[in-house]
Design a protein around this nucleic acid. Structure first.
Lengths: 197, 197, 197, 197
DNA sequence: AATGAATGAGACTTCATTCAT
DNA sequence: AATGAATGAAGTCTCATTCAT
């Protein structure tokens, strides 16, 4: 039985948030645990109460990130019917998430190579699910004739790349609102898939 | 006066090639000079005949990379007339380069954050030139009515992201030939820009 | 809140003592941290719990040395009245210290040039206080007529040099006791200052 | 038969002069051959045409220095008769040399510890000759009753220290001319030796 | 005599990690 | 759970020295 509001419940979120900052700014190999600790108001040694080594920290962080995004997408997908609707939802979630959770997004893309072999497999498995979902949407649309593409898998790649790249350049509070971005990307996605509605 | 074919002229290309491998595989902070040296058949200390520190190595490498790509694009652009032609050429060069020079491409995208302040400014300045070129193509097309987009700058971003991401997943000798890729991306790019030819 | 008698309180004095040995024997550039560490029963990296780099080690050591000597002199000076008495006290402390604390004395004289710019300024500032004190004694004596010198500042230099050089050749347990040395130097100092008592 | 004005005859003096600068500024361990070379307009490797290793460079330099000073003193001593005259001459040469050849003087005092065992013996042997000469002067004066000191050897030390320290603080073109310095030090030396002329 | 590239040793420093307190 | 000190490995960089040219 864990006490509500225990030290752990307060400290881990702080560490997590610091880790997101450090990882997105310096990358896994460029970050270091001393800085992570001081950012979190701790000594380096204390971090080991929260993960058993640096490698594990990365998997934990990335697992949380990927899972959250996957949940968001699955949820959005659930209530959509037509391929176009499904695509719109997919784009909406992806744009929103990559624009608002830039740090998480950048980490999940850049640090795959820093994962342990086991960690890599785990995270890539989650990652593939997005691609499967998108590919399914595309194939669905191609079948029903609302999409028309040369190579569905390639198109899926194009779209995923377009969407995930947002996190690298989007600036909140800049010229483009998230709402505008969503509309534009939905439109672009349809065009890429040869949909003319 | 340096002898043609001196030791330097033989060694630097070897180092350069090793550096591309290490940088693309492990990232700047994940690579190390001992391995770079042994990959190059040298002692670590000998590397310092070729750059004055690790930071400088990165700028040198990235400068060469960016400059080469910029040259390729400028050259291709020169002989193109219509916006569509220009776009096709731009896409062709970008797809070809990002598919064939994957290491260079990945480095130039991932390691911007690892650059020194001064190095960063220098490299970003080159980088911006691509974006300007593409934006110019788009605006050209919008003016002449062959392209139709909601936000030209955003569209430029979408395309650049789509194209540069290729290096992260394309596998030579796989299902898709570079030629196919070029055709598909040219088509997708036109569609993204609302061109219906 | 640091525990009294913590590990730090035991280790630093050991490091300090090793550093004095190494610095006086090999000089700042001739010493090395590996040896300092092994002399101290530590790994080289552990030293960095006590200073942030080699440069800082030197300032810390020299600051402690100079401050201690300055305190000794100030204290001795306090209870002396006449210029002759003050001179005697000054010489007594200086001879005693330079004969008994040879390592410290040699370091504080030889390693000024090895200090960082900032460190140099700090240490030289302390150092100047000795000279000011001695000069004040001399001027005091000249005014009251008990000393007679051509150039007070030059005489101060002569005396300081004479006294500080002791550390370079004096051997404890040799022909001359510290007590004898004190008497002889007091006498010599008075003579240099034209005092005939 | 060596050609007059050969490359060696031009280059060695340049190296020598650079070495004096570097040694006096950074000390033996603080100097480095790359800088010495570039100061001399050479590459590091080329230095090895002039000495067989860094250790030997130091002995060569120090030998030249000490020998020159010894010659100067011996020559000056030759024509002096009375102990006072001899002392005056000794002081004159020492003050002049330590004020005008500061670099050489500082090196010869500071770098004894950096010498190889063999080098050390050789240089110290020369060095002792000064002390013997001064001691001889003092004993001469004590015998003939013109000097009166408690401990002749100690007095010799005091004087040598006083004189050799000049190089550490004297600034050419400052308040004190060399001529003034000579007079003052001659006077101080006599006083230290209890001579009342 | 000089160069430029290479070596090999070793210097300073960083860092993930452990552990007694 | 946290601390502070320690470790050991490794990383970047320097430097005296060698040697083919």
């Amino acid at each position: 039985m864990r006490t509500e509001g225990s030290s752990r419940d307060k400290t881990w979120p702080i560490i997590r948030r610091s880790a997101l900052g450090q990882l997105s700014k310096h990358g896994f190999h460029g970050m270091n645990l001393r800085n992570l600790a001081s950012d979190s108001g701790l000594q380096a040694g204390s971090l080991y109460n929260y993960f058993k080594n640096k490698d594990e920290l990365l998997v934990i962080i990335m697992r949380e990130i990927m899972q959250e995004l996957l949940d968001k997408i699955s949820e959005a997908e659930e209530h959509a019917k037509s391929p176009e609707e499904r695509l719109d939802k997919f784009v909406e979630v992806m744009v929103g998430w990559h624009a608002k959770r830039r740090k998480e997004a950048m980490i999940s893309q850049s640090e795959l190579r820093s994962l342990t072999k086991a960690g890599f497999r785990e995270i890539v498995d989650i990652r593939k699910k997005f691609e499967v979902i998108l590919l399914d949407i595309i194939l669905d649309g191609v079948e029903t004739g609302v999409f028309s593409v040369g190579d569905p898998k390639l198109s899926a790649n194009m779209l995923i790349n377009m969407l995930t790249s947002i996190s690298y350049w989007y600036k909140a509070g800049g010229r483009l609102s998230v709402a505008t971005m969503i509309v534009e990307y939905q439109s672009a996605a349809r065009r890429v898939l040869g949909n003319s509605s």
